[in-house]
């Protein structure tokens, strides 16, 4: 599931040669993401390490995890949507067994700054932590 999700996004991103158009697509993805409940906009769900505010939480349906995110900045919101999309719909085991370097396939380093790359890495760490907590029954 994770690999398929990732491939779909990589394919979509590869349609844009122009960096500005790629950004616009990322922003559009964020704008389409409306499944975040505002009650989760608290320090508990704030992803540390992002230059803007990003909140991220997890829900579970039939042992599959779904990730939800929001941000006060539109590009960060789009990037968070992408990362959530990659991991959503998978089991905690699938998430924990996945290659931690798989996000490199998104080639984000070509379009976003090292600071934003750190932010993306932080989001990924939060997702892995949610999966680990779920696996441990926390």
């Amino acid at each position: 599931m994770i690999t398929e999700n990732l491939k779909a996004i990589v394919d979509e991103l590869s349609l844009f040669d122009d960096a500005l158009e790629k950004y616009e697509y990322i922003i559009e993805l964020g704008s389409l993401n409306a499944d975040f409940e505002d009650s989760y906009k608290s320090d508990k769900y704030l992803v540390k390490g992002c230059s803007s505010s990003v909140w991220l939480y997890c829900t579970e349906v039939e042992n599959k995890l779904f990730f939800h995110s929001d941000s006060n900045a539109m590009i960060a919101k789009g990037l968070a949507s992408i990362i959530c999309k990659v991991y959503s719909g998978s089991s905690s085991k699938e998430i924990l067994d996945s290659d931690v370097k798989l996000l490199e396939n998104l080639n984000l380093s070509e379009i976003i700054t090292p600071v934003r790359q750190n932010g993306v890495a932080s989001m990924q760490r939060y997702i892995l932590k949610f999966a680990k907590d779920f696996e441990d029954g926390c």
Binding site: L20, Y23, S51, S52, M74, I75, A76, I112
Partner: peptide, 14 residues
């Protein structure tokens, strides 16, 4: 109502 980082990033791409 727009975030300074979003503006900065889009300016950079131009």
């Amino acid at each position: 109502n727009l975030h300074h980082e979003d503006i900065g990033a889009l300016l950079d791409k131009q």
